[in-house]
Design a protein around this nucleic acid. Structure first.
Lengths: 154, 154
DNA sequence: TCCTATTTAGGAATGATTACTAAATAGGAT
DNA sequence: ATCCTATTTAGTAATCATTCCTAAATAGGA
């Protein structure tokens, strides 16, 4: 099932309209075109790249709209974002094998240990792709303190 | 072995000087203090936090120096950086279970599949920490094309 | 077709990080 | 110990992805 297959594309566009309507969000040309461009791209485009493509169809679209829409689609579970998530870079002098849990509310980072994650067999080479040098496992969620706070402030 | 233990600290400071000298890099007060602050911190400080601490000892140190030094220590394998790595955010309409390989040279992102990574048992709760909502696995390295290019340009 | 809450365009603002340049300094040579 | 110079630093300006702001446009129900 190729992502730029005619039938598949219109199915997905249909799905988008449905989900937007269900969520009470207006179906705009901008939103349709932005989603369509990501759907057609196999190279994990950034906002700028999507912007340039969409401009060919909607010459007045703004970069802000592209950003807003992309993040909205991520929040709706229709797209996935990858790479960083625009927090400050943090540093750690502990080089022992351990992992990090980042709280989405307060931003604090907690260390944790996990046998299964420690023993991960990281492939040294990915055939047809390249040589692996580093693997990062990021766990995100909400910390106990912030859960506490939220139930109190309700 | 606590990281702010007297003996441990001076051992590590010794180690730093040795590694710097071995690499032909000058041992400056700034570098020593910056490393010492990260070593003493258990909360994965960002550059700004390190900057503020170091200023108490060296009131004229600049934020640029802190950044330069932290990244140098990361490159030397003496510190670890976590969280983002300041690339643009990329988006993906493929929600099937797959993973991403990012090339450190060209920045391209390649999809790959891996049984072991797919079947990871992600703990739903980390005791004493919080509730897990998302886990991201990021693989970085250098892609075949860039390996090719590098050996050609030699 | 009309009305209005939502959305958008365009540009300004933000905030982390990096670049630039003159002054300071680490560390080898004298 | 002093001098010399390549390296490093301080201070500030620049950069760059992303978000904010506000007036104008519009989707979609009445």
């Amino acid at each position: 099932m190729k992502r730029n297959d005619e039938t598949y594309m219109s199915q997905m566009m249909e799905m988008l309209q449905e989900k937007l309507r269900d969520a009470g969000i207006k179906v705009t040309h901008q939103r349709m075109e932005i989603f369509k461009e990501v759907l057609k791209s196999y190279d994990h485009p950034d906002a700028e790249m999507v912007y340039k493509k969409v401009r060919q169809k909607l010459p007045t679209v703004s970069l802000d709209t592209v950003y807003r829409t992309l993040w909205m689609l991520v929040n709706m579970g229709i797209l996935q974002s990858l790479g960083n998530s625009r927090e400050k870079t943090r540093f750690d002098a502990n080089l022992d094998s351990h992992h990090h849990f980042t709280c989405r509310e307060c931003g604090n980072v907690f260390d944790f240990h996990n046998r299964e994650l420690n023993c991960l067999n990281i492939p040294q080479d990915l055939p047809e792709i390249g040589k692996v040098e580093q693997i990062t496992i990021e766990v995100r969620g909400i910390c106990d303190q912030c859960i506490e706070l939220q139930s109190t402030n309700k």
